Amino acid sequence: MTDTAKPNRAIYDLDMLRAVVMVADCGSFTTAAARLHSTQSTVSQKVRRLEEMVGHQLLDRSNREVHPTDAGETLLGYARHLLAVSNQLSEALSGGVTVTVRIGLPDDFVAGKTMQALAAFNRRNPKVKLEITGGLSRDLMSAYDRGELDLVLVKQRRHSREANACQPERIEWFDSAQYPCFAQDPIPLVTFPPRGLYRDDMINAIEAMGRSWRIGFTSSSLAGIQEAVANGLGVSLLPLRVVTPEHRILGAKEGFKPIKVFEAAIFHGPTADPVVQELADILIAILKAEAE
C-alpha cells in the first residue's frame, strides 16, 4: 500500500476532548471555561480545532444552552472513555494520588486552625494531593483568574466581587505593647506595599483624626509587619487573629472608629469537583467559627 493510500488515523488531543466533554456537560462555554480554569476563547478554539479535525460539527450553538449534535454524541462516548483511561493511567503512575487541589491562602491563614484542618483532611484522604500557596490576596486572586489555583480564600472589600462564600473580616489597630508609638507626631505607620490591603484605609483614618503620618515600615510579609509593630516601628491595621502578646490593640479610647469594610471571601469554580467543595466547606466553617 502506498503512502497516499494509507488510512488517515487522527491523533486526538486529550485537551480538545476534555473541552468538548466539559462544554457538553455544562451546556455553556462560559461555565466550562470556569471549570477548566481557562478562558472562553481558548475553550472555543479547542472545540473548533477538534471539529475541523473530525470534519463534523460537534456542538449545536444555535440555542442559549449548548447541546451536542449527533456526531457530537458519538464522539462524547469515546472521549469519556479515553479521558477515563488517561486518568487511570495517571493514577497508576502517581502512586495512587487521584486528585490534586491547588489552594491559595493569605499569610494570616497559613498557620493555626486552617493548617490543622487541612492537614487533618489530608490524613483522612491520602489520595488527595494538596498544593497550598500563601501570599497577598491580590496575587492569589490573579493566580485564580489565570487558572493556576482551584480554590482561594482572600480578603477583599465587602461585595466587591461575588464569591461562593464570605464572612465579614474583623480588623483592629495594633501598636507595640512594649514600645508604643501612637503618641508620636507624625504617627509612624507599618503597612503593606502600595495597593496592598488596608493601606489606604489606614491613611484615611489617621487623616480623619486630624493626625499627621509617615510610613515607618513597608513589607509584603505578614510576619515582617507583626515584628515591626511589636518592636515599635509604627502602628498597623491587621486582622484580629494575628495579634500576639507583643501587641496592644488601639480602639475608641485612642479615637479610632471600627473599620467594617472588609470580608474574607472564598472562590472556586461553579461546578467544582466534590473534593474542592469539601475543602471549601472546611474553610467556611473556620471563618464562621472566628465570627462567633
Rank of each mutant, 00 (worst) to 15 (best):
T69V: 06
A79W: 05
N87Q: 14
S28E: 05
P126K: 12
V152N: 06
D70P: 03
L36E: 01
L75F: 07
A117V: 15
K46R: 15
G147E: 00
L82R: 13
S160P: 02
A143P: 02
L151T: 09
A117N: 09
A34F: 04
T69Y: 06
A92M: 11
I132K: 04
S160K: 07
G77M: 12
G147I: 11
E65C: 10
L105E: 06
A117F: 04
L149M: 06
V66T: 12
V66W: 01
L83I: 12
G77D: 08
G55C: 06
A34Y: 08
A120T: 11
R80A: 05
L136E: 10
D70A: 14
D25Q: 12
L58I: 08
D139R: 14
L83H: 04
D107P: 00
V101D: 03
M141T: 01
V54E: 05
L83S: 13
L58K: 02
S160D: 07
Q156R: 13
Q45W: 06
T114L: 00
Q57N: 10
G72V: 10
L83D: 07
L118C: 02
A33Q: 04
H81A: 12
G55E: 09
S44M: 05
A143R: 14
A92Y: 06
S41Q: 14
R61P: 00
Q88Y: 02
E162K: 13
S90E: 15
Y78R: 15
C26Q: 15
Q116K: 13
F29T: 08
L105S: 06
S41P: 01
F121C: 06
S28C: 08
P68Y: 02
V152G: 01
T100K: 08
P68W: 05
Q156F: 01
A143Q: 14
Q57A: 04
M141R: 12
R64L: 08
F109N: 12
Q40S: 10
